[in-house]
Computed example of a mutant assay.
Amino acid sequence: MSPHDADCPSIPLPWAAALLLALSVERVLALPEICIYCPGSMRNLSEVALYCKQTPGLMVHARCCLNQKGTILGLDLQNCSLKDPGPDFPQAHTAVIIDLQANPLKDDLANNFHGFTQLQTLILPTDVNCPGGINAWNTVTFYRDNQTCQGQRDVCNSTGDIEICPENGSCVHDGPGLLQCICADGFHGYKCMRQGSFSMLMFFGILGSTTLSISILLWGTQRRKAKAS
């Protein structure tokens, strides 16, 4: 044994294997829940896998394509027997490409895509409409086993309705075919018609007094019932 070897004690093989296993398990547990929502890993030739391999700095983990910060840029949930995308689906709102083909999905998926403003490619079963309809996408292409919704349009820029939001509000894109009307500074309420800051003190004062009144009423009712019995 050389002096150099003596200064660097070796790690027994079983302990080294256990350490590597622990590190890999920790990495799996750190993944967003949507990445492991469906068992197994994505196919090597899937559109999401190809996008991930062709884009520098991205990595495939379980069903997700992640950047170095762990942000989801691709999600492959094809062939997962899904009737809906599931409660963890909003975790993928940063995705650029999502594959949901080969699932018995419900037809209307629009409300599942709130906040998915970065999405540019969505692959769906042929019997499921693109969220927001065909006008929410630049192209919709049908194939034998799936369809692709490509190039999400900004509803705020593509609509011809200049009164889509009230005068004191601005339109903010919120996903395929979705938008929000945000009130300008100094305005709030219905159609942003109320001017001035929203009074939190008044709101919580009314809420507190109402709660107190109901509590006193219930207490009095219970007390009368107790005396009567």
Score class of each variant (00 low, 15 high):
12 P>W: 01
92 A>N: 13
225 K>Q: 15
226 A>L: 14
120 Q>G: 08
163 E>G: 00
157 N>Y: 02
80 C>I: 12
101 Q>H: 15
197 S>Y: 04
109 L>T: 10
169 G>K: 01
156 C>A: 02
179 L>W: 08
105 L>Q: 04
176 P>L: 06
71 T>M: 13
92 A>M: 10
216 I>G: 00
94 T>Q: 10
142 F>I: 12
190 Y>K: 11
132 G>W: 00
180 Q>K: 15
64 C>A: 08
192 C>R: 07
160 G>W: 01
109 L>N: 05
87 P>L: 07
7 D>T: 10
68 Q>H: 13
117 T>A: 03
84 D>A: 06
27 R>L: 04
192 C>D: 09
123 I>D: 01
123 I>W: 06
95 A>N: 11
225 K>G: 03
52 C>A: 07
77 L>F: 05
52 C>I: 06
203 F>W: 05
9 P>S: 01
203 F>S: 04
221 T>M: 14
200 M>Y: 08
37 Y>T: 02
171 C>A: 09
25 V>R: 02
70 G>L: 09
198 F>C: 10
226 A>T: 10
115 G>T: 07
1 M>L: 13
76 D>N: 12
168 N>M: 06
66 L>A: 04
224 R>L: 14
111 N>M: 13
148 T>S: 05
64 C>I: 11
32 P>V: 02
135 N>L: 12
73 L>D: 01
9 P>G: 01
117 T>C: 03
152 Q>M: 13
146 N>G: 06
164 I>A: 00
117 T>L: 02
191 K>N: 14
134 I>K: 12
78 Q>I: 00
110 A>H: 12
115 G>D: 05
37 Y>R: 05
42 M>V: 05
126 T>C: 02
19 L>K: 11
228 A>K: 14
38 C>S: 00
162 I>T: 12
133 G>E: 11
201 L>Q: 12
83 K>L: 11
147 Q>K: 13
127 D>W: 05
3 P>E: 14
105 L>I: 07
136 A>L: 03
29 L>H: 10
170 S>N: 13
200 M>P: 00
11 I>A: 02
